[in-house]
């Protein structure tokens, strides 16, 4: 259990891993928007190519990427079927007519387009935000990005601190859960057999000590933090300062070109349009 990878971070030293997390967050959002802008065959083709390029550049094994797609395959098939059967097009595009079922070329195009959009979006966001960015970098990046919000009294630093502490304590609490479960098992608790309600009830003697201990930990941590002169985000400096390098500007340039290309293809490229 100790080896659980949080946020599915995949350690490597690719260019993508070394980008500033702030830039990655911005690009990630931009990428989602771009995938929604795509309208015709060529722009979707470009989107597909971009997703493949992302996988190559980030050096994430295809197998791992496929795993994350597997999770949403049902939704994809479902939307594809809906699109195939329910899209109505002009009469000349009708390719199959049987009883009440009418299938148009448009429907098939739409089904493929939406599948490509969902897959690219998943690949894009997971590569920018989870596979190549550690949760802590992500928290850091968010804190800096949202910093302007502190002027309208949004406690950005406090949220980031909570996130950091949560991330720090996930492994500790998992370890403790295992310990308590073993202790209860040793006293004859059974977590695997019986009806659902029985198994849920068996978890109560695990959860109660876990919560009690979590509160005790929280108290002790607060004392330790106070002793280390913590008094909120004001006047605090940081060991690590996020730095944007030429790489980050290059990445921003590429995503801008990519966005522009999609818009241009939407307007000028021939063929079926959604």
């Amino acid at each position: 259990m100790k080896s659980v990878a949080f946020g599915q971070y995949y350690p490597s030293n690719s260019v993508m891993h070394r980008l500033d997390p702030r830039v990655k967050i911005v690009i990630g959002i931009f990428y989602i928007v771009a995938s929604f802008l795509c309208k015709n065959v060529l722009s979707f083709a470009l989107l597909t190519v971009s997703a493949l390029v992302l996988i190559l550049v980030s050096k994430i094994p295809v197998k791992i990427v496929l795993k994350s797609i597997k999770a949403i395959i049902f939704i994809m098939i479902f939307t594809a079927i809906l699109n195939i059967f329910w899209t109505k097009g002009p009469e000349e595009n009708l390719i199959l007519h049987w009883n009440f079922i009418n299938i148009y070329v448009d429907g098939i195009y739409n089904a493929v387009f939406i599948a490509v959009r969902i897959i690219s979006m998943i690949i894009g966001t997971s590569i920018f935000l989870t596979y190549t960015t550690t949760p802590i970098e992500l928290t850091d990046g968010l804190e800096r990005l949202l910093y302007p919000l502190t002027f309208i009294k949004v406690p950005v630093h406090e949220f980031a601190m909570m996130m950091t502490i949560a991330l720090r304590f996930i492994p500790t609490i998992i370890e403790e859960t295992e310990k308590i479960m073993s202790a209860q098992k040793a006293r004859g608790a059974d977590f695997t057999n019986g009806s659902l309600s029985k198994r849920a009830k068996a978890l109560i003697p695990v959860l109660i000590p876990l919560f009690v201990s979590a509160f005790r930990r929280a108290g002790e941590l607060a004392t330790a933090m106070t002793c280390r002169c913590y008094r909120g985000g004001n006047g605090r400096t940081r060991l690590k300062v996020l730095k944007t390098t030429y790489r980050d500007y290059l990445a921003l340039f590429f995503i801008a070109v990519f966005g522009a290309a999609i818009v241009l293809l939407n307007i000028y490229a021939p063929g079926y349009t959604m």
Binding site: P135, I136, T164, I165, L167, R168, T172, R217, E220, L221, A224, M225
Partner: peptide, 9 residues
């Protein structure tokens, strides 16, 4: 308890 004093990951 060392676990309850460490803040960062």
């Amino acid at each position: 308890n060392p676990d309850n004093q460490l803040v960062a990951t």
